[in-house]
Computed example of a mutant assay.
Amino acid sequence: MRLNKTIDHTLLKQNSTEAQIKELCSQAKEFDFATVCINPCWIEFCKKELAGSDVGVCTVIGFPLGAMTTDSKVFEAKNAIEIGADEVDMVLNIGALKDNRMDYVINEIKAIKEAVGTHVLKVIIETCLLTDEEKVRACEAVVKAGADFVKTSTGFSTSGATVEDVRLMKATVKDQCKVKAAGGVRSYDDLLQMIEAGAERIGTSSGCALLQGKNIENNVY
């Protein structure tokens, strides 16, 4: 596995500027990351910046709370694909999961997967807000709904990915879908541990430093 191709190079802060997004794309091309992960307003800009490279454009849907209506998430996902997104990271409805309204959870993921078609769909379950039982239930829902990845975190809640959560998620989904770890990867060793635990994609704003063996302080995402 090429480590650089496990990384979604991420910038999701609401105060991100065009210059910062341009630099994100430049870094992603230099290191040949899997994707840049950005808010939907930057999709078309990044598509142009990354033209001719092997770096995809990933965007977020229902972000960061997941509490939007299903119809609004579906519209957002369709629009993202129409304007150039290659991959979509949606936020699961956490309240519905905690209420055990699994038909709602599964049907929403299914509807968004239908909206994005053959494009990659990752489902953020926000592990820091869930019990282990709820994490397992969320992973099972992601598999049943036909999504491509289950993802740990938005990076905007109380904490990010842990090795233990990644291991639990991988044990639950097995080979039926993939696992993405996001947030909390602060060193090259952290990166390797997440992959060894079962993650096939890493969401981080610090991929360049991590691949150069530098530790990151106060890295949120």
Rank of each mutant, 00 (worst) to 15 (best):
E133S: 15
G184S: 09
C177F: 05
L130W: 02
S187W: 04
L130N: 11
K135H: 05
T127F: 01
E134L: 04
L192K: 15
K122D: 12
G155F: 01
E200I: 02
R186I: 01
V185H: 01
C128W: 01
A147T: 14
G146A: 12
E196F: 00
G203W: 04
D175C: 10
A145W: 01
I125W: 01
A182Y: 02
I124H: 02
L129D: 07
G146M: 14
K151M: 05
D148R: 08
S157P: 02
C128Y: 12
E196M: 03
V142S: 04
E164N: 11
V136P: 05
R201Y: 13
C139N: 03
T154I: 04
T158I: 13
I202L: 14
A171W: 04
K151R: 06
D189S: 14
F156D: 02
K170N: 10
F149Q: 12
A145R: 01
A141D: 13
V179Q: 05
G146E: 09
D148H: 15
L121D: 08
Q176H: 14
L192T: 12
K122H: 13
E133Y: 10
R167V: 00
C177S: 10
D165N: 14
D189N: 14
G183Y: 00
L191T: 01
A145D: 06
D165K: 04
G146S: 14
F149D: 00
T131P: 09
C177V: 11
A161Y: 03
K135A: 07
T154M: 06
K180L: 05
G203M: 04
L191E: 00
K178V: 00
L168E: 05
A199Q: 09
E126K: 01
I125S: 10
C139A: 15
F156K: 06
A199W: 00
L130D: 12
I195L: 10
A181K: 00
D148G: 10
K170M: 07
C128G: 12
K135S: 10
K174D: 05
K180N: 06
L130C: 08
M194T: 07
G160Q: 02
V120F: 07
K170F: 10
R201E: 13
S157L: 11
E134G: 02
K135T: 06
K180W: 06
G155S: 11
T127Y: 05
I195Q: 06
G203C: 07
V185P: 02
L192V: 12
K122I: 05
A138G: 03
I195G: 03
K174E: 15
F149A: 09
A197V: 11
E133P: 02
S153E: 08
E133H: 09
D132S: 13
